[in-house]
Design a protein around this nucleic acid. Sequence first.
DNA 1: CAACAGGATTAGT
DNA 2: ACTAATCCTGTTG
Length: 279
Amino acid sequence: MLYSEDITWATKGVGEPSQSGAQGGRGEAQKEPEQCPIIDSQGLGLGTEGDLQASLHLEEHSLEQVQSMVVGEVLKDIETACKLLNIAADPADWSPGNVQKWILWTEHQYRLPQIGKSFQELSGKDLCAMSEEQFCQRSPACGDILHAHLDIWKSAAWMKEKAAPGDVRYCGGDASWADSEVDSSCAGQPIHLWQFLKELLLKPTTILILKPQLISGTLSCIFKIEDSAQVARLWGIRKNRPAMNYDKLSRSIRQYYKKGIIRKPDISQRLVYQFVHPV
DNA sequence: CAACAGGATTAGT
DNA sequence: ACTAATCCTGTTG
């Protein structure tokens, strides 16, 4: 269902806005399935019918690969957004406040024109029941786009429910995954502190917590270090630096000030920092 | 006292 | 060259 819409949305939306930090290390993990250049479609093939069928089959196969990859990316993005905004994955569970957050977030992520308060007072269920026309009525500028985004969230929730009804996720204690660091971002290259912090933010832990706030219409990426000693310990483990402590770690964070990666929020508080570029 | 700011030096890549 | 580790002096709540 609505795959074609998903794909067009994804190619328009997903790739572009990942200018987070310096080199947002996200896409490197899975390489794109071999790009077969012009050769396949014209140069060699098209002799016999068998060849043609084979190449068609190949194309279909790689299309499937691309599709599942894109779906995976979309699900990951949704999961990230849920954690950042502290909202449920299923739009049907949203309160009016959640709806407001989601709209602001989507608006911000995809550089949509400002919508204002035209969706206020609507619950997630209300939102889900609305047609594209009704969306456009409330927001002529980008109602269609918002509707499409919501559709993706809806089908993602639907897929999730179908795939894992009794989904018992990692409910274990905090540091269980940390010591057996088998993390995704193992590109081999040294891990940057800011990457490590972002990683920690998106994990189910209370060592480091996000406090997404709406500041002048945009979402800021403010976080609080709840356990400085623990953060330093984990960082020391990751970098194989047993003598690491928060004093030294925070010095490294401070180095980010002039690089424009992390800063202190406007109202400076102890152990609270802010990523300059929102997610 | 622990967090914070930032200079200087060294280490590791 | 760059990032981070280490060490340090001084400030602040």
